[in-house]
Design a protein around this nucleic acid. Sequence first.
DNA 1: GTAGGTCTTGACCATACGGTCAGGAAAAGA
DNA 2: TCTTTTCCTGACCGTATGGTCAAGACCTAC
Lengths: 206, 206
Amino acid sequence: MQDTPMPLPRSRIQTRNREAILEAALEVFSSQGFRGATLEQIAEAAGLSKPNLLYYFPSKEVVHSTLLAGLLDTWLDPLREMDAAGDPVEEILGYVRRKLDLSRDFPRESRLFANEILQGAPRMRAVIEGELKALVEEKAAVLRRWMEDGRIARVEPVHLIFSIWALTQHYADFDMQVRAVLGEGHDPFAEAGAFLTTLYARLLRP
Amino acid sequence: MQDTPMPLPRSRIQTRNREAILEAALEVFSSQGFRGATLEQIAEAAGLSKPNLLYYFPSKEVVHSTLLAGLLDTWLDPLREMDAAGDPVEEILGYVRRKLDLSRDFPRESRLFANEILQGAPRMRAVIEGELKALVEEKAAVLRRWMEDGRIARVEPVHLIFSIWALTQHYADFDMQVRAVLGEGHDPFAEAGAFLTTLYARLLRP
DNA sequence: GTAGGTCTTGACCATACGGTCAGGAAAAGA
DNA sequence: TCTTTTCCTGACCGTATGGTCAAGACCTAC
C-alpha cells in the first residue's frame, strides 16, 4: 500500500523503467480512471510486459498511489507562492496565471486528480483534510488581511480560492467539451487567460 | 446501444423496476464510474437479482446510455430559460442560481456527466458537438447583443458561460474536497450562492 | 380455475484481469 | 572469463464480471 520510504539505490534500468511505467500509467489512469485502466494497457504503453511491470511495482494500487503522491506538491506550489508581502491583485492574478499554466501543461495530472476527487477521494482523503486544508486556511488568512486593509474587495476568501480552482481546472478536465463548443481556430487557454484576468481584476477592485 | 424509440406499453411492474434500476445505476455509476460499477452492485441497490436486471435492460451499456440520454435536457434547461427580453444581469444571475440549484439537488447527475466528459465523452460526443454547441452559440449571441447595447460589461460570452458551468458544477463534482476544506458548520451551496452573486454582479456591471 | 403471458432466479459460461512463479537472458562484478 | 545479481517472460491461477438460459413463480384475462 505504501512505497518504501528509504530511497533505495536504483540502477539506470530501474530508473528508466519506473519512469516509463509512471508516464504510461498517468496516460491511462487519467483517461480511464483507476478501475477502467488495466495493467496490460499500462505495460504496453510503457513498452514492457505485464509481469515485468509487476517486477517494478508490487501492484496496480501502488502504481496509482505513487502517481498521486508525486502530484500534490506540484499542484499546491502555485498557491504556496502567493506572497503576503506582494501587491494583492498582482499576487492573486499571478496565482491564477500559474494555475492555468498547470492546466495547460499538465492536463493529465489534473484529470487524474479530478477522477480521484469525483470518486470521493478514497486514496487522498487524509492529504486533503490535512496539508491542503492547512494551506488554504493559511492563504485565506492572507486574503482576509488584504481585505481588511482595503487593498482588495471583500469576498469570502475560501470561496475565492475555490473559484480559482474551478475556473482553471475546468479547462483541463473538461477540455473535450471546451474544444467541442469553441470549434476550430481557438486557443482555449489563451482565451481563458484573458477572460480570467478580466474577471479577477473586476472582482477584486476595492 | 440505443433504447427503442417507440414508447412501448409498460406494465406497473415494468415501470417500477426500470425506475428502481435507473435510480440505483445513477447512484453507482456516479460514484464509481462506468467501469468501476458492477451489475451486481446496481442490481442489489435496486433490490433485484442480476439476471432480473438484465431482463429489463439488455446490457450495462444500455443502462448507462439511458441515464445519460435522460440527463442532457435537465442539464440544459436552465440555460434555455435565459431570456433575451429580460433584464441582462437578472437573467444571468438567474441562470447562475438555477445551475447552482441543480448542483445542489442533483449532484449525482453532475458527477455522472463529469465522469463522462473526463473520459473524453465517448458516449456523448455527438450530443455535445450538436445540441449543446448550438444552444451555447445561440445564448452567446444574446449575451453579445447585451454587451453591444452597453447593458453588461464586455467579456468573451462563451467563456462567461464556461465560467458559470465551472463554478457551479465544482460544488457538486468536488463536493468532497469543498466540504473537507471548509470543515464542519458550513453550508457550501448557500455560501456559493452568495459568492457567485457578488462575483457576477461585479463582473457584469457595465 | 386455468391458460397464456410476464416476471424471476439459480446455475452456468466465457472472458478479462490482477497477480504469481519458475526459469532463462542480460548485466555487472570478480 | 566465470559468477552473481538483476532483469525479463511464458505459462499459469483464482476471482470477478458481463451476460445467457432453462425452468419455475407469479399475474392477469377469460
